[in-house]
Design a protein around this nucleic acid. Structure first.
Lengths: 343, 343
DNA sequence: TTGAAAGCGCTAACAT
DNA sequence: ATGTTAGCGCTTTCAA
């Protein structure tokens, strides 16, 4: 590897001068600067960020830890983060926690070893509190994305999950549905808790008992949605829901798969609505009503917050932003309750 | 920050001993080891990867540069890469080139500054050759994903794009279509060139001139697909295609959007097939025939290849893997040509 | 405007 | 089984 010394030697100057050129510092004679730049090109010199980072105590790198990057919701967040980071001169290291606190902890540790300047985290659950507390203690900057954790005061960018779930449920009510089930992820995650709340609020507001709740263990997975829907279909006719609120895109897909298995048509026989857009699908064949969150903005905002902190906003109180979701109504005709509720 | 010296001091040993404990090296007395581990815990010591990397000349970090992480195809690749990297003790730095050679070059440079041990790259185009050549020259390990570049011999994992396009086109022919258009991305990218080839082969095999080709400038973007489809709709009836092959998921969505704008029904009035699955959508509402590629496997394989190289397979010839795509036929009834071709 | 010296935190190589 | 020395490539500080 070419070092700064090599360049210095070739250009007939000291390493310091080369350093100054590389970092665009002022006090270098034009002629010298050009000579140095030529040497850099000739030798193909690439500064060693590790050495620089070691010395300066920062790496110009930030971490993004989400549950699963292959969820389009987090993908969009990643894209937003990456854009902002890039513009501000930071590289992004990626980690998937798979919704487990343990894997999350491991990742965060790796990130800390790599001396990331800060972290963006969608915490896996309440158990994340421990790691986050120790991060806080060590003075490491971080921003929470999409999910909060009780007892952790930190910068946060999330959606209004209560309102979103309320809107979805109210939408179904407005179409005439009375028996509305909720298929929800593990309550470890704040989004699941908040969405449950919104669902309950909407039903209670019209005097309906919110008792058709299925909490899947294995959070927000397609398989879980499928299992939950199967259970619901086993209910006797007069208890079976006529509509299902799935609290996330993966769950919704699982639910619909299970319904199709049993030849239950969507939305004619069973209305389905869910949180999170289903990306390209929606453009193609509008089929189910969803609550869309500005995921990319989650990413850009959070990254911006983090970088602001890194630039020295030490003692400013944590910024907590709650972005409003948007109800995107589709297939509302099909979803309208056709037969009067049984029984 | 806590350094190894601090730990050494607290445990009453030398830094070397601490280092040995941290790295699980053998020759440390059990008692000493425990004392050191206690000190590490007490102080919350996290080894400095920058210092270690500087010394050892490697960072245990690899780079992934794709055109756009928010394309589900690349998302899945990223997930595969991340899994393998994680298992092998590497962190992954992410970059989006947005299909521009210039942004790609910048990213690669940043990655090199961060002293990544190797790179996984889906090159933006033929212009990528320059960067890749210089990577090669500098001895930096890299693996190409999804796209090859003329003149660059390196490890490669891609799909059989010629065969895939041939299958899509043949499928349409088998349904009775004769005027089949191709909406393709910029020929800068190898996938676009190969897909064009497959399309041409399939048509020529049955004696049809493959002249209904639209190459969009702005590679593989939704907007481009929309524009191309609009153009095709402007053709006089007897020239207008009855089916469209879109060479990527984004283009397909754009095409379908444009068709819907003009009240052309898919697939009844115009059949559409495309490369790349449309993720969750396909599970929900099978509507168009696609060529699915094992994207996640692209990622895991490529990462494996890279890591193999990093572990010292210096002089082994480049491994070039071409994974077979799979034609997933859907909505074939609707896509069958109904009216005999005009004219 | 330029350079010399010192040291960031760690571990390879060599003692003991 | 443990310790000492030296130096990875860079920049901060001070001097010229």
């Amino acid at each position: 590897m070419i070092t700064i010394q090599d360049v210095a030697h070739r250009a007939g100057v000291s390493a310091m001068t080369v350093s100054r050129v590389v970092n665009n510092q002022a006090r270098v004679a034009l002629a010298t600067r050009q000579r140095v730049q030529q040497a850099i090109k000739d030798l193909g010199y690439v500064p060693n960020g590790l050495a620089r980072g070691l010395l300066q105590g920062r790496s110009r790198t930030i971490a993004l830890v989400v549950s699963d990057i292959s969820n389009p919701f987090f993908t969009l967040i990643a894209r937003g983060v990456e854009d902002v980071a890039q513009r501000c001169g930071y590289a992004v290291i990626l980690g998937n926690s798979d919704e487990t606190v343990e894997k999350e902890r491991q990742y965060i540790n790796v990130m800390l070893e790599n001396r990331v300047d800060g972290l963006l985290i969608a915490p896996a659950g309440r158990g994340s509190r421990k790691v986050l507390d120790s991060l806080k203690q060590s003075g490491t900057k971080f921003v929470l994305i999409d999910r909060h954790v009780e007892g952790i005061m930190a910068d946060l960018v999330e959606g209004d999950n209560v309102a979103g779930a309320r809107q979805l449920t109210a939408h179904l009510l407005s179409l005439g549905h009375q028996r509305i089930a909720l298929v929800n992820g593990s309550l470890e995650v704040s989004t699941a808790r908040d969405r449950l709340l919104g669902y309950q609020e909407a039903l209670q507001a019209v005097g309906i008992q919110p008792d058709l709740v299925r909490i899947v263990g294995n959070s927000y997975k397609r398989e879980s949605g499928r299992g939950a829907a199967r259970e619901l279909l086993l209910l006797p006719d007069e208890q079976r829901p006529t509509a299902i609120v799935a609290t996330n895109n993966f769950l919704a897909v699982g639910v619909i798969e299970a319904l199709r298995e049993s030849s239950v048509r969507v939305p004619e026989d069973m209305a389905v609505v869910c949180f999170d857009d289903i990306e390209l699908a929606s453009a193609l064949d509008p089929f189910l009503t969803v609550v869309v969150q500005p995921a990319r903005t989650f990413g850009t905002l959070a990254a911006q917050f983090l970088i602001d902190r890194l630039r020295g906003e030490e003692d400013i109180a944590p910024r907590r932003v709650i972005l409003p979701p948007e109800l995107s109504v589709r297939a509302s005709c099909g979803a309208r309750l056709r037969r009067p509720p049984h029984g």
